[in-house]
């Protein structure tokens, strides 16, 4: 394959759009949550100010090279998902490098970021980090189980692991979406989405008052900036993944923005009215209805 600078330019432009949409979306969600709680909420441009402020601050404390590489690994995971995720159906330029990867690669990049954070946080030597790591990896493993089953079901249904092929198979009308043709995989996937988006009731990993403070205090300054940048990209990309798998992908940027907003809003909508599970409760929850839905989805297409 020839290296195409034009394609690279569109990919970087796409990354810029996704980053800014992720920041705006997080501000919108916070605003919606605030209005439910009878508050005014933050200004819509606050995430940009936070990001600039974070990048302007240097950390004075050193915990070793692995500690610093944690956010870098996390960021690589987020960007990795972006690079192999098609954004707009049928557009070569807005498909990034999706033709070179498939769902297995996306799943790997999801876990890669978590492992990077685990290594980095472990290097800090703080007992809270060990608790946070064990919680985070335990929960993420539980989330992956129904999501993997849903993806296997889709792979059987469409006879491919390529996201581009899965999206194209859903074109032609809303009735062709996996949400209707494979509802059990969609249930398993969307319930897993609740966990992967990091809102209540599955956000004990970074719960401030339930011990492991997590990235906001372990990492600060530029490192926190890197993590927040990654979070903005990752949230959009996770929503885009579920959009591509279950809701027919997007034919233009407007559709992309609308669908990713609604999918991300799903986790906020649930999270705003629920407290959080403890980790063992969260693991048990994912091993019940979502897992059963995933198994049923596979059985139906075998």
């Amino acid at each position: 394959m020839e290296f195409d600078f034009k394609h690279l330019g569109f990919t970087l432009l796409g990354l810029l759009i996704v980053l800014n949409w992720g920041l705006l979306m997080s501000a919108l969600m916070q605003k919606i949550g605030a209005r439910v709680a009878r508050r005014i909420g933050i200004r819509l441009y606050q995430p940009w100010i936070d990001l600039i402020k974070n990048y302007a601050i240097r950390s004075q404390i050193s915990h070793g090279i692995m500690f610093y590489l944690g956010p870098v690994f996390r960021f690589s995971g987020g960007v990795g998902i972006f690079l192999f995720m098609p954004l707009i159906v049928g557009s070569v330029m807005w498909s990034n490098y999706s033709f070179q990867g498939d769902l297995v690669l996306i799943m790997y990049f999801q876990f890669f970021g978590m492992l990077g954070m685990a290594l980095g946080a472990g290097e800090s030597g703080h007992p809270n980090s060990a608790i946070g790591i064990s919680r985070g990896l335990a929960q993420f493993t539980a989330i992956e189980a129904p999501l993997t089953l849903a993806i296997i079901s889709l792979a059987i249904q469409y006879n491919t692991l390529s996201i581009v092929d899965i999206v194209e198979a859903q074109q032609g009308g809303i009735q062709n979406w996996s949400a209707w043709t494979n509802p059990f995989a969609t249930i398993a996937g969307m319930l897993a989405a609740l966990g992967s988006m990091g809102h209540s009731p599955f956000n004990l990993v970074k719960a401030p008052n339930e011990i492991p403070i997590g990235p906001p205090t372990e990492y600060h300054g530029t490192f926190l900036g890197v993590l927040r940048t990654n979070a903005a990209i990752l949230h959009v990309m996770e929503a885009a993944l579920f959009m591509n798998l279950f809701f027919g992908g997007a034919n233009n940027w407007f559709e992309f923005i609308l669908k990713t907003f609604l999918i991300y809003f799903w986790s906020v909508f649930v999270g705003v009215v629920f407290p959080r599970f403890r980790i063992e409760q969260s693991v048990a929850w994912f091993f019940k209805i979502p897992l059963i839905a995933g198994v049923v989805a596979i059985i139906l297409f075998m």
């Binding site: 949550g33 709680a37 009878r38 009731p201 339930e210 959080r276």
Partner: peptide
């Protein structure tokens, strides 16, 4: 009490 379990909405209503 619900706030200690991460339900911030209740806390905000309580403050109001």
């Amino acid at each position: 009490q619900a706030g200690t379990f991460g339900l911030g909405l209740g806390v905000q209503w309580g403050v109001y």
